[in-house]
Amino acid sequence: MRLFIPVIAALALLAGPAHAEWAPKGPIKFWIGFGAGGGTDTQARALAEELEALKGWRIIPENKAGGGGAVMAAQLKNEPADGQTLGLAINTTFDFATIGNENISIDDFTYITMTAGSQMAVLARADSGWKSLDDMVKAAKSGTKIVWANWGNQVQAGAEMVARHYGIEVNHLRGKGGKSAINALVAKDANVGWGGGVQGPLVAAGELVILASAEPKPLVQAPDQPTLIDLGVMETGLGFQFVLAGPKGMSADARDTIAAAIHEVLKNPESKTAKFVTKQYPPGPLMTAGDALTAQLKKNLESNKELVKLVK
């Protein structure tokens, strides 16, 4: 009787060869914590497509934007932990937005793998003539109105920290998504802006200059510029990493199989995902996964809690 049910046949096919590797029993819902058309979305859709081609798993990407990934995370935590619902967001979704949040906590999720990280920079147009943060501060003190383009609370707070450190006035300009800040800068709506990585080609072409790095290390794109931590502006960086997560309680088997599959795509330099990541978020893919990733996020959470306390 069972043999006549096509489903079983289909499932048997899906399971593939005999070795007992984990495989999803049905289609994977791949949720994207940001809106359509942005860096996360582009990356996630390329990844979904190549993962499907690589493993034969059926993957259906869907955007669930809002709250810097938190809206998606709040829904993800209620899904069954069978590896059939995954969500791509950034580390701050889990190690910053969870602080004081009633809906989500860091323990609600299984962390699978990182995919890439930002190159967070303070940017100015080359025609401003500024070569360093000091030049900008001098200009501000001699009467230039500083309009600083950002895309969210965390980076806006970062701009405010710079302003407070140097005793200057800053006007904030909020846009949607990382590219909006670059656009505002280029369109002369702003004269300073944050860049998460997209700025690379513009910096290389000499359109924009990097004034400082907001990562813990100097940027690949401008290795000679100091970090904001070196300058004493802030204690931790503002950079972010993309993190793929599932609901809590996923089996280690499922988690590691998915992570390994993603790493296989990221390690193939010819894959669309790897190409995009390398271009947008140099130097290239990040592959911290599983327990190491969980430990790192928890460590971040503790230092972010300290930061929040400090600022308050």
Binding site: I8, A10, L11, K25, G26, P27, R58, I60, P80, Q84
Partner: peptide, 16 residues
């Protein structure tokens, strides 16, 4: 006893 799948496994399987 005709199957051991749940609906979640079959959301992309005809005819279900």
């Amino acid at each position: 006893g005709l199957t051991d799948a749940t609906y979640r496994h079959l959301t992309d399987t005809a005819p279900y």
